[in-house]
Design a binder for these strands. Structure first.
Lengths: 217, 217
DNA sequence: CTGGTTTAGTACCAGTCGGTAATTAAATTT
DNA sequence: AAATTTAATTACCGACTGGTACTAAACCAG
């Protein structure tokens, strides 16, 4: 279809490999020669296709977000399941992504937050931006839960969002440190006990409820 | 006192500077030339005094442990204060160390756990060892709290220790990502709510207390 | 086959990496 | 003052870093 010499390597596959490499070894720990030998695309090809190392890393993080972090946050915000179910699914998702048998341990974003020093400022800022998105998604869900009656009206939504955002970071670091699967799920259980969920918004019990905000979900 | 030419630079001060550098920029992000120019000790001096880069990093981590992590863990294990006080002081200590205005953000050990790939295996193992020590200290304190009656007899001590060990990691990463002081202390408040502490072992309040929720917060 | 177009591959750049040999400088001991 | 001991300094090593000119190859339309 194209006019010139056909590509040897699919740029999308290259980006997938680059994402895994940066995820595992970080920005400074992954050299352009590494990427070249891992992907099979020679260095000049990398530069002409994607730009410099900074640009490749940024595209790799975007890819991570649309493959891993993004869907989980969308589920958080959009799912109609009860709050407790949604939050638990979020944390379980973090564990699953951070312990995938194939693929790097931990979380790309968490690694970025820690490595931040010594990488271009734009990438540091990118990592922080993605981190904020996670906290915002949690905040949105907790806010609507408060209006739903799943949480008390005086619940501190921001604190709760910061807390569970932090739990994701903790799980990511523990997974990277090699914590076993079972420990991480015990951790999730403990973290879930913080959620001050109200059990009284079940339709069978609606006659007992005084608060009129039980509708609208 | 010594026989030859006197030292220009105190090796202990060199190690202090090296610790801060590795803490801030990590193993790969800190070059021997960096250390040489920061400390004022030329490279051959570094090698003859401490050994290779791996050895310097290990000594820097030991220094971090005896200056920061160690005293906090000792307080955890040895203090006679009530469990809630001791655990809160531990988390407050993590926040304080991770947000010191002078000095790097975050936690040396947590950074090590994340950077692990691409550094010598012995250093990776060292980081994991220190991480285990923190969890063990928490475990010891929770175990004795259970025998004291500060915790229920059926409390899952290991889960609780894993949880609070993870909170330290979360705080470290959040601090490194630039989270404000206030957010971190709110986080500590939330994390403290997990502690299933029994209030009935205080002699002065035994007769007044029916409901354990009569304290602050 | 020819010319144009797009990619792949080789070779190279200046700079830095961790690490070291050889030498010079400064002190003490004899 | 000479010999000895210790540390500071300079200069360098091969390997690797991010990044790039330049050339060779593989396709298309004519």
């Amino acid at each position: 279809m194209p006019r010139g010499r056909p590509r040897k390597t699919d740029p999308d596959a290259v980006l997938e490999t680059a994402m895994k490499a940066f995820w595992e070894r970080g920005f400074e720990g992954t050299s352009m020669n590494d990427l070249s030998s891992m992907t099979g695309m020679a260095k000049p090809g990398l530069y002409s296709n994607f730009g410099d190392k900074e640009a490749i890393y940024a595209k790799a993080m975007e890819r991570y977000c649309s493959s891993y972090a993004g869907p989980m946050l969308e589920d958080l915000v959009r799912s109609d399941d009860p709050l407790e179910v949604v939050v638990r699914r979020f944390l379980d998702g973090v564990v699953a992504a951070a312990t995938e048998t194939m693929g790097p341990k931990g979380c790309f974003v968490a690694n970025n937050l820690v490595e931040c020093a010594g990488m271009p400022q734009s990438l540091e800022a990118l990592g922080r931006y993605v981190d904020e998105q996670r906290q915002k998604a949690l905040s949105i869900r907790f806010q609507s839960a408060r209006k739903n009656g799943e949480l008390h009206e005086d619940t501190d939504v921001k604190s709760l969002a910061e807390f569970y955002s932090g739990q994701a970071l903790a799980l990511a670091v523990m997974a990277r440190a090699g914590a076993p699967w079972a420990s991480l799920y015990r951790f999730v259980d403990t973290a879930m006990s913080v959620l001050p969920v109200l059990e009284d918004n079940d339709p069978e019990e609606e006659e007992y409820v005084e608060d009129p905000l039980w509708e609208l979900r």
